[in-house]
Amino acid sequence: METNNVWLVTGASKGIGLSLVKKLLASGHSVAATSRNAQSLIDAIGAPAANFLPLEVNLADNNSVLTAVEKSIAQFGHLDVVVNNAGYGQIGTLEELSDMESRENFDVNVFGTLNVIRNVMPQLRKQQKGHIFNIASIGGYHGGFPGWGIYLATKFAVAGLTESLAAEIKEFGVNATVVYPGYFRTDFLSKGSVGRPARPIEAYTAARKAEQAHINEINHQQPNDPEKAADVLIAISQEANPPVHLFLGKDAYDLVQDKQNIVNKDVEQYKNYTFSTAY
């Protein structure tokens, strides 16, 4: 890709998204950045400029996303890299969370990502190049976290749709990568970025302990640096053959090994049942 690319980054007012946008602008790239509140982008990054387009977008509204993509192409002429970074965590066991709480998490984390993909692909297909990064979570690979089931389900969905997307768009010269970050020192676990169940059931002691650990102990003590995550995304965007799967953080690496060991153990222990279904 060219040295100076046009990036579209969602969820850009904080966390990894904010670090990424700042680095991109400092390096001479052009950026269309989205947030639920455009003023938050201006406060965090700066006023609109020839190379910076802050956009207020409701990702769950396809028309809002379409308008943002059209404005981005109108200003910059094309798109090179799309980063679906926006999302939020929803704490709560599967029994506790209401249908509305569950669906709202899917609306942003999954359907918001789909809305962006649907609306950027005509441009990427037309130009026969581009790269889509979908930010999942290590929780989209390893689901063994009590009280996080709905959030993890959204991230498993992002991982699955990205694998399919990569296969679908390869013929157009467009790449797709699902990113699995471990714990990064952002405001992800703070109020406004994480939802808690409206009707908690105290019988779920493991879920309550995990919730308190995340809010009171892990929050702002995460081992990974969002600035370094931004550096990796920029570097991967310049790879000729980028990976479909990208894990960020040693904690993510360790959880991959743990998940694979668990699966391999189950596969081997019960393979007689697995093979028993053949005619």
Rank of each mutant, 00 (worst) to 15 (best):
N261V: 11
Q221D: 15
T177W: 02
I138A: 00
G249L: 06
A176R: 02
E168G: 08
E96C: 09
A32C: 12
N175C: 13
K129C: 12
E171I: 14
I91M: 07
Q39M: 14
N105K: 02
V82H: 01
K191W: 10
F172A: 06
G195P: 02
L255R: 07
N37V: 09
S102H: 00
D225S: 12
L255F: 10
N115W: 06
A210P: 01
K126D: 09
N63A: 12
G112N: 04
P223C: 08
V244I: 15
Q123F: 03
Y183T: 05
Y88C: 03
N85L: 07
E211A: 08
D258M: 14
L41V: 13
L189M: 10
L53K: 05
T205H: 07
L8Y: 07
A157Q: 05
S72Q: 05
A203D: 13
P181H: 11
Q257D: 14
W7V: 06
V21K: 05
L248R: 02
G249N: 05
G140R: 00
Q269R: 09
V82R: 00
A159W: 03
D107N: 06
A206N: 11
A32V: 08
F188V: 10
K155N: 10
Q238A: 15
L20W: 01
A47M: 13
V158G: 04
I215P: 00
D266A: 10
A235H: 15
F76H: 02
V178F: 07
S64Y: 11
